[in-house]
Design a protein around this nucleic acid. Structure first.
Lengths: 347, 347
DNA sequence: AGCGAAATTGCAAACGTTTTAAATGCGAGC
DNA sequence: GCTCGCATTTAAAACGTTTGCAATTTCGCT
């Protein structure tokens, strides 16, 4: 990189042109003579010129960034979700030359305040919001502020007047029920979390709806609930399910991590999977393939979804559509060996 | 948020002060009367004022961002590493108010060109570089450019004149050998990759050094090599090892994913672990705990390392130390059930 | 009352870009 | 030779902040 020219001014001086002309030439404006355009482009390439982002942002009002707030969890909580999501988002953005900015929330700092900072400081042209809560102040803020965003997930109240992409957990849980019902299961367990996330309801409602559709009064559903990050409570809740006088023959877990715990506890209780108990998860995390006997689950293809979210957001930023962009992605069943026919009753 | 005031100018007008004074008051300059400072601070808080990042960056030359280039891999390659790393990095940065910018490399675009773009455009005050290659053009560029960076990993040639943090893979592999030797193993296998990453050499050299230290001529080491992302070739290489006329009794894998494949193939070949074969990995990814019988491996605590890298980089950006900051993190052995005494020879 | 120093505040330039509006050069038409 | 219109180029303002220097106010002291 010979003769480091960093600014438009230097480049202009070197070419004997005005800043304006150079700027326009690089932007490819038709009004600049073709010969000049070529000359400028070549000189810029030679000099390794890269426009200054801050200056461009300041004048144009567009930063070329998409923001996301990093959810910081407890110290030993790895987010198998995050790596995939970030990768996918990056893929979706790169084609349009956007980059991703990740702002972490410090301990004790609310996610909302970080989000506000990102928005108000003009760091980003739009943001992605994940894991929607039942009452989500982030969405409320963004909508009131009329700031471009795409949500990964939905609110419950049917108020869908914003752009979102979601995985159809309701459908998946219905599918799981139907499959298990057809295998003879009548007594079901659901392991869920107590945090007010909307996906919890959507999935549970999908299960309930499928049960209702079947119209079989002999179907029974027991629900075990525990806080998301309290491993002890989770194990307790699961064991209450496993050691009830009438034990479910099939357990559906809100997501794979819960399902894996169910399988561990079942093994500890001497139950063979799938002979004594069928287990079905959701997410298809890497460990699910390895945990014996292989967890049957649904693959939500997070990376692909994140990529689409990135593309949606760029559309929103560019076009400001007034009709909401929405997309419901149907997860695919990954059939492994953790489910099978209901055991013949003898209990 | 009543009366949205967004700029310093508006805030100044509202307070009847000059822009200069307001700016200085918010920055806490002593020269501004305490009373004024308080008045300004309160008004800014009320108005929800957040300084414009672009303007600040433009004049100060500091963006407050740390950059990193997202390695985009093949479509179905999840990077269990990335999520943890990004989370840790975010944690390390947030305490000093920095954010992270992630730039993805588009298909066919070199990682170097993206890095150059990030640097030259002034988007970031410093960058993090991971997965160091034997001949790493990114490091060469950054050093020549004298741009602040911290590397996750080391070059081989002893030319350590830059800031880095690395996991001591050499030590870990030595430890693994010593442990297995003491369990009676004499015939070892190493499963490694063909990509020119420095960590491959460091770990292999650590193993070789431990063997040499022991000075036992009966120790034998067979090496199986395959491209990182070619599952077929990987399986082939591993099976050559497993089906050799004289099979190793202990296999050390460069990282867990390889170790898990070894365990799968061993199971397929009817070998019981750890009775017939001991396997040891490196990384401690989530799946390693679930894959039967539980993989013995080393935990590199990626998240913690990334956090330290973030803190190091902020130091580098702030202080520009001339002595290199370096840190070698010793991974800890996670002892599960995939290793045991060497089988008694009968072959 | 007046002077000077100290305390406090403000003016204006600068950062590097985009963009509006205007200027310049040039050939054609009369 | 003069004007008009077109193609091409440029001057200057603007974006919102920080900061060197200058201006203003305050206040103690004589």
């Amino acid at each position: 990189m010979p003769g480091r020219v960093t600014t438009l001014k230097e480049l202009a001086a070197q070419l004997g042109l005005s800043i304006t002309t150079v700027s326009r030439a690089l932007a490819g404006h038709e009004q600049i003579a073709l010969k000049t355009r070529q000359r400028v482009t070549e000189a810029a390439r030679q000099a390794g010129y890269v426009p200054n982002t801050a200056a461009r942002t300041l004048v144009s009002g567009r930063s070329g960034f998409v923001g996301m707030v990093l959810p910081i969890r407890g110290p030993n909580l790895v987010d198998s979700f995050l790596g995939e999501f970030v990768t996918g988002l990056g893929e979706g953005l790169v084609s349009h030359g956007s980059d991703l900015i990740l702002a972490a929330a410090a301990q004790g700092q609310s996610e909302l305040s970080v989000l506000r900072h990102v928005v108000e400081s003009g760091r980003a042209d739009g943001v992605v919001v994940t894991r929607i809560a039942e009452v989500d102040e982030r969405l409320a803020y963004l909508r009131q502020r009329n700031f471009p965003f795409v949500a990964h997930g939905r609110l419950l109240d049917g108020d869908f007047a914003y752009h979102w992409l979601d995985t159809d957990g309701a459908h998946a849980f219905g599918e799981a029920f139907d499959m298990l019902y057809d295998l003879g299961h009548r007594h079901f367990g659901l392991v869920t979390i107590s945090e007010p996330m909307t996906f919890r309801h959507l999935r549970q409602d999908g299960l309930a709806a499928a049960i209702a559709r079947r119209g079989d009064p002999s179907v029974r559903l027991d629900v075990a609930t525990a806080p998301r990050f309290d491993r002890g409570a989770r194990i307790q809740a699961i064991n209450r399910l496993l050691h009830a006088t009438e034990r479910p023959t099939a357990i559906v877990a809100l997501f794979d991590e819960l399902a894996l715990t169910v399988m561990e506890e079942a093994a500890r209780a001497g139950l063979a999977i799938p002979r004594d108990l069928s287990v079905i998860g959701f997410d298809n995390i890497a460990a699910s393939a390895y945990a014996p006997p292989g967890l049957t689950t649904f693959d939500a293809s997070i990376r692909q979804c994140a990529r689409e979210i990135g593309e949606m957001l760029l559309t929103v930023i560019g076009n400001r559509p007034d009709a909401p962009l929405t997309r419901l992605v149907r997860p695919t069943l990954v059939s492994r060996a953790s489910h099978g026919p209901a055991p013949t009753r003898q209990n």
